[in-house]
Write a protein that binds this DNA or RNA. Structure first.
Lengths: 392, 392
DNA sequence: GCCACTTACTCCGAAAGTGGAAATACTTCA
DNA sequence: TGAAGTATTTCCACTTTCGGAGTAAGTGGC
């Protein structure tokens, strides 16, 4: 038998789909330009994707002095993806259609310490309910779950999560698939936030470092335009990096003076308590800072300094074009000022000249946005397209 | 006019060439397996590359229970590349044929402080002489020059090189091309050493950090199997990272306590001198260590500790599978022990479990090997193949 | 309001790349 | 010695792809 049609194409369907998905092409002519294919071939590709139900034409776009282009979009009704971000006490869920439009949203109080089965059962129930609430819901294509702890790149298991008691070795994807038969990606939350920020707005930086400072501290890395996970999947896990010159505060990892034990929201709450200033949690501590509470502000600035000190070594090493500060503490000006100050004091101009230091544009949504992007990428990966094509 | 031949192929000539060059394919059948092309097409590609003079058949390989494969190799006579590694007082030059075999070698004393024009004129003269000494020398295809200082990725200029007075802003490629009309790549020496080590021997690590400790300290990064240069090209430049807890030794950059000022060979020579132990240079200092001179050994161990402390932050952040220690100081056991000890004390098991810490296998040759690889990659890049094809 | 011009897209024929099957070359293993 | 296995070649049919011509549908000048 000669080669079946469609397998031999130099530019695969998923590549063309990606162009449209990511907004890099909105017409047949765009596809031709972006891929380097001839107009004929590009049109044929698009036609096939329309026939298969992935793309739709939505009227015409603005003319650029000639015939107006026929605007292409993802067909939302082609499917749904689910983005989940787990926190210690809170789960954020977004359901998006294939076009990336959010069609449902849920926020649940959870207790991560209830363990993976219980928490994920709650989450899955909320997802099922959210999907059931939609008029003629399309099929679920993929799901991404963000967790506040390290995830092994090779096995997908949660590993040594300091803030997730009972989750060590948990196979989140397998647990979810007990109830929802879809491909599931599990990813560390800081990594997802980096992705969310990377995808948001203007021109994405090829090399970016995203540092998340909330109750804990984590960091996500984009190298060469893609997420850098490292050999084990633990890249960016700077929580247990020793901070130079920091007091020997004991850390959950058994050592002292770790960044997490010195500069995280949880650490600051504890430091305040020791000094007779009770704050219920990180949010409460930030409320104090918003009221210009002097000691809190001072501690925040120092924590920013500690974070900036660790980051400056990283920036020298990695030389990114953007450093983004996210997580709850990024709303505290004193903290951000402390980070900036430490970095400018400790990095040479060669590094800081080409560096943009910014507070996250997408704020608390970063993790869910990143999870959404991962889920969409998974749903329209060549592999998944092939699997679904074969299933018909 | 219909499409000209050879432009439409899904697998470009340079990809097939790369398979053979890098030893991943030694027969037509290998090419078919590695590329996923049919045997027919793979054979056609190989035939074309033989016709164009890039590949040759060199007898047959060992049979695996059937017809023995016809062994393919790069045609050495297809061209030459030049690999140059500049040090402060020494230039190493290697001339290789297209098959990657070294056909000439030169070692020159230079004084980097003579400035770029003078030094490079000397180097180019040596290259010309070396090439002239060959029987019927093939044409020069490409050249890579490694320099002991930062190189801008965007402009290719040498930038703020602490150890290269008079080279700030030097356009090494342009200067060389005055005399040798070939494509030239300029690259920081630590980056090249990382590449050299990466290419050498067994299975190359996808994520690798190479730290070079000689008179100065630098570091090269491999992320996702390719050299990570960072946004400006300065990635890995850890010389001016502040070392936690180090004495406030003034540094050439204007700050104090930089890694370069604390733990480099030059810094140790100075520290020894202050304590009344004269050593002429880094080599002399290492000779003392080889004679088990107590103070030198102690200083080396402390320098290793400082280096390891900076590296542990980097390892937490980057999570590589290999850390390679190179440069002159890697021959001092006390130094290497200091590095290891600091890393194991300061990185969590999550990071160290999947980490191999090794001394460079290729030693002093690392930089030239890396330069050779860069030059060969450049010579057989799709762009250069196209340029040369058009020139005929 | 007509006309030149630009841009987007479609139809058509031709050439080239591609893979499958079958044939051939050469070797190991029983 | 033959059977089986691997490497390579030959032949052929099938796609894919492209370029060019043709059509569609706007803009802007006068």
């Amino acid at each position: 038998m000669p080669t079946p049609a469609g397998d031999r194409s130099a530019t695969s369907p998923s590549e063309v789909l990606a162009l449209v998905r990511l907004g890099r092409a909105t017409s047949r002519a765009d596809v031709a330009r972006e891929t380097g294919l001839s107009a004929t071939t590009a049109a044929a590709r698009v036609e096939m994707l329309i026939r298969r139900g992935w793309l739709v034409e939505t009227g015409t776009g603005p003319s650029a002095g000639g015939r107006p282009p026929r605007r292409l979009e993802m067909r939302g009704a082609a499917g749904l993806v689910v983005a989940v971000s787990l926190g210690e006490r809170h789960a954020a869920i977004a359901v998006l259609d294939a076009a990336g439009r959010q069609v449902a949203e849920r926020h649940l109080p959870i207790a991560v310490s209830d363990g993976p089965e219980a928490v994920l059962r709650t989450v899955v129930t909320a997802v099922e309910e959210a999907v059931a609430g939609l008029d003629d819901a399309p099929p679920l294509l993929a799901m991404c779950v963000g967790v506040p702890g390290p995830v092994s790149a090779s096995t997908g298991l949660v590993v040594s999560p300091a803030r997730m008691p009972g989750w060590n070795g948990a196979d989140v994807a397998a647990i979810v698939r007990q109830w929802l038969p879809v491909p599931v990606i599990v990813q560390n939350d800081a990594n997802l936030m980096a992705l969310g920020e990377h995808a948001a707005g203007g021109s994405p930086a090829e090399q970016m470092v995203f540092v998340k400072v909330g109750s804990g501290i984590g960091c996500g890395v984009v190298a060469g335009g893609v997420l850098h996970r490292g050999s084990g999947g633990f890249a960016g896990d700077i929580s247990h990096t020793t901070v130079p010159g920091a007091p020997p505060v004991p850390c959950s990892c058994g050592r002292v003076g770790c960044l997490d034990a010195v500069a995280s929201g949880a650490a600051l709450v504890e430091q305040l308590a020791e000094r007779g200033v009770p704050a219920p949690d990180t949010e409460g501590m930030l409320d104090l800072a918003r009221d210009a509470h002097p000691l809190t502000t001072q501690l925040l600035r120092e924590a920013g300094g500690s974070t900036g000190t660790v980051l400056s070594t990283i920036l020298n090493f990695f030389n990114p074009e953007r450093l983004v500060i996210g997580g709850h503490l990024s709303s505290a000006e004193a903290f951000v000022a402390g980070v900036r100050s430490a970095i400018y004091a400790q990095c040479p101009p060669m590094i800081t000249d080409g560096l943009e230091i910014a507070v996250s544009r997408v704020g608390q949504q970063a993790a869910v946005l990143g999870a959404a992007r991962e889920a969409l990428d998974l749903a329209f990966s060549p592999e998944q397209l092939a699997v679904r094509a074969a299933a018909r």
